[in-house]
């Protein structure tokens, strides 16, 4: 079973010996039970680290910040950063390596296996507890979560409150790591694309109405983009200033820059935003589910990404985030690709 003690010991050693700059991990949030990202810089602070089923965040997103920060420093500290990753998160590292956004020597990967479980879905949990407030959640040894509340302990079967993505996870242990805690428990999901069956079954008209209702809710806070480790572009088409402006950029250049999307949260603009993002994640999304979790308006963004993941698998036999040496889906072709016009 994955143990935080193993990771803490290694983290302490790494920090003491100065082998890493800092460690990106999980600590307890201010409500006392939900994990949140923490950045541990000193060996004596390592005890702040936790590992439990509330460690939902994909921390690899902070590698993007780290790279940006380093890029601005005159004499950057070139030591790696330590990072705690789950199976899904580790596959994000694989993609970042594959795209040469980061270098393997930039990260020291502390992997944890989710084994038979995964992380909880906060909404499902809240529904299950019907008003009771959790104080701690642990994984039991009989496929159950043990939830402590002020009224005592409750046991809930893992499958009932697991995050949707975890129910469809095919690699619940890190695929790349320097140290791993826990067992490589294989788990084969019955329906790896089960969540999108419902939307796939809709007629084009129904599907349009479904997405129109969902995307009309969007307030364009861009939390889905901001939380995503794959959305690392310096220039994004949706920003009001979507070009890298320098001191010598002329007014003409600025005025001639095409505005792809208006700021008004209209259906048309929201569709463009979400379509652009989904397409840019084709063959890159590792289904950490962070976009959907972060969305304050509960837009089911995973459906879009999952659909593209399925297309990549069925059309090109491509699975994201398992092999660093594999060329990226959208930058390569094979003779066996189904598009006849390529030949």
């Amino acid at each position: 079973m994955a143990k935080i003690e193993d990771l803490k010991e290694e983290a302490k050693k790494l920090l003491r010996e100065g082998k890493v700059k800092y460690i990106i991990g999980y600590g307890v949030g201010s409500n006392g039970w939900m994990a949140n990202p923490v950045f541990v810089k000193k060996p004596e602070d390592v005890d702040a680290l936790v590992w439990d089923p509330t460690c939902v965040h994909n921390l690899t997103r902070f590698l993007v910040d780290e790279k940006r920060r380093k890029g601005k420093e005159k004499q950057p500290d070139t030591r790696p950063v330590g990072i705690i990753v789950k199976g899904c998160d580790s596959r994000a590292i694989v993609v970042l390596l594959q795209e040469k956004f980061i270098d393997r020597k930039d990260v020291y990967i502390l992997g944890v296996s989710c084994e038979k479980a995964g992380v909880v879905d906060e909404k499902k949990l809240a529904k299950k507890l019907a008003g009771k407030k959790p104080s701690q959640i642990e994984l039991g040894d009989k496929d159950q979560f043990i939830i402590s509340t002020a009224e005592g302990k409750t046991e809930v079967p893992v499958a009932e409150i697991l995050a949707e993505r975890c129910l469809e996870c095919k690699a619940n242990f890190p695929v790349i790591f320097d140290l791993m805690s826990g067992d490589k428990t294989k788990r084969t999901p019955e329906k790896p694309f089960g969540s999108i069956e419902q939307t796939e079954a809709l007629s084009p008209e129904e599907r349009w109405n479904f997405w129109k209702t969902e995307l009309d809710k969007c307030i364009r806070c861009y939390a889905c983009r901001s939380v995503c480790p794959m959305c690392y572009c310096d220039e994004c088409v949706v920003d009001s200033i979507n070009m890298a402006v320098a001191a010598d950029t002329t007014a003409e250049e600025k005025s001639e820059k095409i505005k792809w999307i208006q700021r008004s949260p209209e259906s048309s603009e929201n569709f463009v935003y979400h379509m652009v993002r989904a397409i840019h994640l084709g063959g890159r999304c590792i289904d950490c589910g962070e976009c959907e979790r972060a969305c304050p308006l509960d837009i089911p963004l995973r459906f879009l990404n999952k659909k593209l993941e399925k297309e990549a698998k069925e059309l090109f036999g491509y699975e994201v985030g398992f092999d660093v040496s594999q060329p990226a889906l959208i930058s390569c072709f094979k003779d066996s690709d189904p598009e006849d016009f390529i030949r």
């Binding site: 990202p37 950045f39 902070f62 307030i219 806070c221 939390a223 983009r225 972060a294």
Partner: peptide, 8 residues
Amino acid sequence: MSCIRCGI
């Protein structure tokens, strides 16, 4: 450090 610069 943990801010993701969204607008929530």
